[in-house]
């Protein structure tokens, strides 16, 4: 997965849809994508459990995540 930090606004939609689809609850702590504040930008980190299902990219309203081909 590729994270374009310039487009990211920190809305956490990626983490919310990830935890919802994998754990049936909305919880950034359970998500396989984690956003960290880095100055004025957000940095995304993907945990080893991420299966690259691509939901985070499909739901991101800002186009800040892309699935690698």
């Amino acid at each position: 997965m590729i994270h374009v930090s310039e487009k990211c606004t920190g809305c956490l939609t990626c983490a919310l849809v990830c935890s919802l689809s994998h754990h049936e609850q909305c919880s950034p702590s359970l998500a396989y994508v984690r956003l960290h504040a880095d100055g004025s930008r957000w940095r995304a980190e993907f945990t080893p459990d991420c299966d690259e299902c691509g939901r985070c990219a499909r739901y991101c309203p800002y186009g800040a995540l892309e699935k690698e081909n």
Partner: peptide, 18 residues
């Protein structure tokens, strides 16, 4: 908060948000 919010019907929520 390190926990989460339980969702009654996860599939339906995703469909509606989509």
């Amino acid at each position: 908060g390190g926990g989460g919010v339980a969702i009654a019907d996860p599939g339906r929520v995703q469909e509606l948000v989509k």
